[in-house]
Nucleic acid binder design. Structure first.
Lengths: 196, 196, 196, 196
DNA sequence: AATGAATGAGATTTCATTCAT
DNA sequence: AATGAATGAAATCTCATTCAT
């Protein structure tokens, strides 16, 4: 009974896009409503306000990233396989819908404290992956926090570079290459060579 | 060195800090005036308005970065020397005043068109540096745009990682290490080995 | 006795309470629906809207007061008996359900014109009672409008005083005392003494 | 330097009047601004918001009442003189500007807790006056809280009665009469008779 | 040069009411 | 009868900017 919430997803999608296009503060409720084809008040049936909407969109997608990572991690633990899988999965995800990643980047800042407290933080997961690979000897022991950031930096900046028009074509085309550099920096190849 | 000046008028410094702390849209003229110890109207003596202030702060500092890069590039062209110098210079700069870099990152987006048109764009300069190194055979020929982004990503993400509390201590302590990875990814070491 | 019914539908009772607790304008349809355990739309099954609900609650209860007074007035006309009966009846009523009286006080203002036109207005009835007592010589002739207000003031302020925490216990305990003062101010005792 | 706050008092007076005429919730910021001849934003230079404005107006005037009482109390302590003075002062005050008293009555409710905590609460002062008169034997010992409310009720309801059109002319004309009733109810006359 | 009151435009939010289900 | 999504109008509040002093 009662109408189905026909417009909820339209509102959320419009918000996501506009936040990316014009920034969170640069986007008004009116903008969102207009693009979603509803009136301003409709938003408040589904979210307490703009902040709440931002938060909901963020954590929903943040959790999505974390799930993606967890899923791959479980299926094959070896660093040399996992990293390429992760890079490829992320790039495929980004190619398919660049808005979500950009939105998450955009908003991370504002929700910093809450992100830090989040155990399923994707960065935290990557950090654990690196730590474990070091422990298992899949890569040489070293400065894990730095290595985590370097891998993150290469992967994410590739996406940013595409956004800024400095890199062409789908990211997936560079997945293998970028993953290779991640392994190179990790010392994974040297380690596996040594193991041979 | 062509570093941007570290001392600004109270208004500009207050604005810079607040923009970083609360975002540009999240900072009101009143906020700025309050922190600077003046009243709202005073700002309009020095700048046409908020937009003008943002733009002034951005280009002033953006140009500073470019100058820093140009200066180093001219003094020694070899990639294997230049990259470590650049990384160290950037990290020193960041350690001394993290606000400026963060502000530039924050605002890039909004001024995107104007940044792209700017020949002295720091990213553009790095891109040229990489291109030239390839031309000269200092590093193997390859996907220059991607390599530029990878270097950028590693360097900048190190700063971000520190900001997010994942990396401790001054960035400068990691300068050599990070630069080494940049050269590794560039293939500079292999190239120089081959040259031997 | 013609007391207004103490049980209302959930909606009406919830509305009554909330109006007293948070004011009419401070109470939303949603608030009422929530407390009544229904949804917003349900209210419109029973009332045309919020205004209609307020009006209905008011006149229902206002008429109840008038009935209470009329009933007692008819049963024994003598002022010296009637006043104590009225005071006691009002105090009993208030003790049993303070919300109704408070609600009526709260809303009187807004419905002023309609109340004035109402012949069965409780204040109007009291006024007639006083006038008649003067005519009959039960109390000395005098400033009837003022006397009416003085009686009203003493009785009602006793209730207000309890609400504000300045008077303890059930009002009924003070009924006799307060009634005595009303008669004292009316000159009823002197009059009856003189009649002796 | 800077313009003088020309409109502050206009805003506050307009607000006071409108709150009385249409209720606090029934009065919008726009209404206030319109009557004061300013734009809506002007209000926020002087008060944080509507609530803040209400609070400021209330406590300013509430304190005014308390001062009036304190002043008279100090000048002559005897109950038989003080009560008529107080009643007259209050009626004169009301005749001169009925809005202030009505506003205070209107808002008391909402600020109940804060009022209770206020030592200079006019009701609290009256209560002390009565208590002291009992202690000094100026009036017979008895139920002080009730007596306080009865006096309050008579005095205030006279004002309310005039507002509702049931009592004509300036209140001051009734000051002596009402004060006489207050003393009568207090037993002051009997007490002074007994003292003779 | 500076002040800070006031403006004017627009943002977020609330809410009585309507209406498809 | 009831639901609750959506509307539409209005309310509160914010803020870059202007301007009299």
């Amino acid at each position: 009974m009662g109408r189905p919430p026909l417009k909820k997803s339209a509102i959320e999608r419009s918000a996501l896009e506009l936040f990316v296009e014009k920034g969170v503060d640069g986007t008004s409720i009116r903008d969102i409503a207009e693009r979603a084809g509803v009136t301003e008040g409709a938003l408040y049936r589904h979210h307490k306000g703009k902040d709440d909407l931002v938060r909901a969109l963020f954590f929903e997608n943040h959790a999505g990233f974390a799930k993606m990572i967890s899923h791959l991690w479980k299926s094959d633990g070896r660093f040399q396989v996992l990293i390429p899988d992760l890079v490829r999965a992320f790039f495929e995800f980004y190619d398919q819908d660049p808005y979500i990643f950009r939105f998450v980047m955009l908003v991370r800042h504002k929700l910093l404290e809450e992100v830090r407290a989040d155990e399923k933080n994707p960065v935290e997961l990557l950090s654990r992956i690196v730590r474990e690979a070091m422990k298992r000897g899949e890569i040489p022991k070293g400065d894990e926090p730095l290595l985590t950031q370097l891998i993150l930096g290469m992967v994410m900046q590739t996406a940013v570079g595409q956004y800024y028009g400095r890199i062409d074509g789908p990211l997936v085309d560079r997945a293998e290459t970028v993953a290779g550099y991640c392994l190179l920096v990790s010392g994974a190849e040297a380690a596996s060579a040594a193991a041979r």
